[in-house]
Design a protein around this nucleic acid. Structure first.
Lengths: 253, 253
DNA sequence: GATAATGTGTCTTATATAAGACCTATGATT
DNA sequence: AATCATAGGTCTTATATAAGACACATTATC
């Protein structure tokens, strides 16, 4: 069907790609898949059509679809299961634990923290929030301040900033423990990437009191910007972590 | 040649693999390539034979060689260059900067630090060193203590521990600034992976004096175990980093 | 020095086989 | 008759092989 080759690129939808960056075919396919996920056409947990069906639908070979899916699987955006199919990744607790939560107790066993909200408000974004979230000055943000416990011990106190335009009314209801799953289910926003900056600081009297340490005690400050599937920055959080009995774990392959 | 199939696994060298894990063919090929690098047969910078030559030599198809090389490229162990060939990765400064050096000044521009050795000795490994490096109690290690400067400011003071059995006589000559390149050129040891644990601590009077801060000043403690190609732990280092004007940068895809 | 030829490696497509998961019909047992 | 286990069949992904098209770098040629 596409064996005869009037063009080396059988992409019939976008003939004007060549002059610009000219991404390889499998990457165009990958971007198209990401767009479907971002648009909610393929929600989390969705079982995608088989590789051959996708290939026929788009008009490329099954191997090209496979290469696109391989990269998506490497980025944890889809999960492949032999014999079952390929699923859009979900933000279940285990995935968040392995992918986004880097603070572990020194015994090395990862545990998911419990959270307790201290305060929530909607206000005009500060300069730092505008910079971190890449939003206009004067835009409104929701701010959530909470403590997180591991094994009942308060280990983290953090402040989250969320653009009100993306998460309207998020401070009104109960803010759940597993935020990324909530972003997904209520707002259709999937967190795909995150960047973190770490510093060592000393605790202010207020933060120290919350964490049950003396003022001036050292803590790890983790500033995170989380990005959605389409690359927008949708969450900014600053976490203060006690590392007396825990550590931030990183590895470079 | 391997078309007739008395076994589904055409690996003639190791017929006893099947009962155990049974790795796919492309992974066996990948492991064979890693072994060649670890054995010094393929030194850093080496231009490997073309995919088809490798395929013919091993007796698998070119696509299988490609899949093995793809994974190696994803792990930064080889570098592919279209039209030129595939090369064994080298520990040049730029690669180390991007892959292993995560401390950047707050302006975001990465710079490679200068180093100044404070002390070097060979001694019996401490309990912590035995645990970190996975060596026998009583084994000897080389210890190097040094300060690292960025833009002339002392930002890091660190202690390295190296098994004497792997790096004999490393403390005798001049210890160079770019250690991983030195491991490679003088000892044929390539650092492939590293694991880090981060904590916030306060500086001891001695460390504080070296870094030009008051005692009790907060600092980021980074404990790194570096692994060679064959998976052996070959370096343990504990770095104390000032983060007043810098931060540790991490990202999760 | 500019241009063409050539070799090499990668990209894309195609095809075949293997293995895991799921469904269902069959048959035996209770 | 109802229940359970098993054996096939089918679907999907995983793995392996192969071949043509394209991109890039080098070399040869004019």
């Amino acid at each position: 069907m596409i064996s005869d080759k009037p063009e080396s690129c059988p992409d019939a939808t976008n003939p004007a790609v060549a002059p610009v960056g000219f991404r390889p075919l499998y990457r165009q396919v990958k971007d198209a898949f990401i767009k479907r996920m971002a648009d909610g056409l393929w929600p989390p947990g969705f079982l995608l059509p088989s590789e051959s069906v996708l290939a026929g639908e788009i008009g490329v070979s099954q191997g090209t679809v496979r290469k696109a899916l391989d990269e998506l699987a490497a980025e944890n955006l889809v999960v492949r299961q032999q014999g079952k199919g390929t699923f859009v990744a979900q933000h279940d607790e285990k995935r968040i634990l392995f992918q986004f939560f880097k603070l572990v107790r020194d015994d090395g066993i990862p545990r998911f923290p419990e959270s307790q909200v201290l305060a929530a408000e909607v206000a005009e974004a500060s300069a730092a929030e505008c910079a971190g979230l890449d939003i206009e000055p004067g835009a409104r943000v929701a701010r959530v301040r909470r403590v997180r416990f591991i094994d009942g011990d308060p280990l983290i106190v953090e402040t989250l900033s969320l653009p009100d335009a993306i998460f309207p009314g998020i401070t009104e209801g109960e803010v759940p423990n597993s935020l990324y799953a909530y972003y997904s289910s209520r707002y259709g926003v999937t967190i795909a990437f995150a960047r973190e900056k770490l510093k060592a600081i000393v605790l202010s009297p207020e933060d120290a009191a919350i964490l049950g340490r003396p003022a001036g005690h050292p803590a790890l400050q983790v500033s995170r910007v989380a990005l959605a599937l389409d690359g927008r920055a949708v969450e900014w959080r600053v976490s203060l972590c006690l590392t007396d009995d825990a550590h931030y774990s990183a590895s470079m392959r």
